[in-house]
Design a protein around this nucleic acid. Structure first.
Lengths: 155, 155
DNA sequence: CTTGTAGTTGAAGTCAACTTGAGGTCAAGG
DNA sequence: CCTTGACCTCAAGTTGACTTCAACTACAAG
């Protein structure tokens, strides 16, 4: 598979866990880079795997691709990124997760005080109006983790 | 505004916090019901407010509209729902929230063990591969709470 | 040299939950 | 009678993160 030390799409797909279509998409939006063979096929450097690893981790933590891209853009230009560089990028994630956890906990605690009464009062119920679960702007957005639903929704 | 005790769209919109367009949408998908005036305008019964309150709470907890609809479908047919009915519907939510919180905590703890090293190793890093943060099927889905991003993303 | 697998492109589709817009109706006040 | 504002419908648009498709090309094995 590997004449040089460059990787093909399917190599990268398998190793990174991203579908080939996702890799092409990421290239289109400038998130990752690939050189081309004379026949116009993509060849990836090994370093793209680490970049993709960062992207996956960022997504896991809840970042959008835009945010991940912005973070990646702060990597140094001339030299290859060091471990310290990567660590710097993910340093803020703990706080973000703490906040997310806190919001969910407050929601749950509000639920505890509501569940017996079945109130769901429009004005007073904490599950109705969790002050700190930010209302999301724009269409198609809900308050809370749609994706986490899959934790329960089998199949 | 109120000649009878029926509510107009804007009444319901204001009291429920849902936009009129959302109310119309909910009616189209059979989530709420409204009668019509001779001039074809919607008139809502007061009970729709409670129904909408349930829907909002369900969305806050992370349910889809489909799931909310399924839950609402289990309400008794002949009689108006009691407080016990509503309480029953929201009883499972605590477990759901607990699970969501747990998944995030494990992710955070994995991050703690990773952040110093900047590894993000494809095989071993917990932030890379949180075993219990379910991978979501289908397009457009990530691992974790996109909406929670708004907690940070000002503007 | 043939064959099959893997790769290419650009455009369009998917999903959820709505919103927006165009074009029209209705009821009340002045 | 006219205007204003609230309401109606139906179709299409929005968002993010991709996937799917059709039609075509490249490369390695035999």
């Amino acid at each position: 598979m590997r004449t040089t030390d460059l990787l093909t799409v399917s190599d990268v797909a398998e190793r990174s866990g991203f579908a080939p279509s996702a890799l092409r998409f990421y290239e289109r939006i400038g998130l990752v880079h690939a050189t081309r063979t004379t026949g116009n096929q993509r060849r990836y450097e090994r370093s793209v795997l680490r970049r993709l690893a960062f992207i996956r981790a960022a997504r896991n933590v809840g970042l959008s691709l835009d945010e991940a891209a912005a973070a990646l853009a702060t990597l140094p230009d001339g030299r290859p990124p060091t471990r310290a560089d990567w660590a710097r990028l993910s340093r803020g994630w703990r706080r973000r997760l703490d906040d997310q956890i806190g919001a969910l906990q407050r929601l749950r605690d509000g639920l505890d005080s509501c569940i017996g009464c079945g109130c769901l009062s429009l004005k007073t119920c904490a599950v109705q109006n969790p002050a700190d679960v930010a209302q999301v702007r724009g269409p198609g957005a809900a308050y809370l983790p749609a994706p986490l639903r899959a934790v329960h929704a089998r199949r």
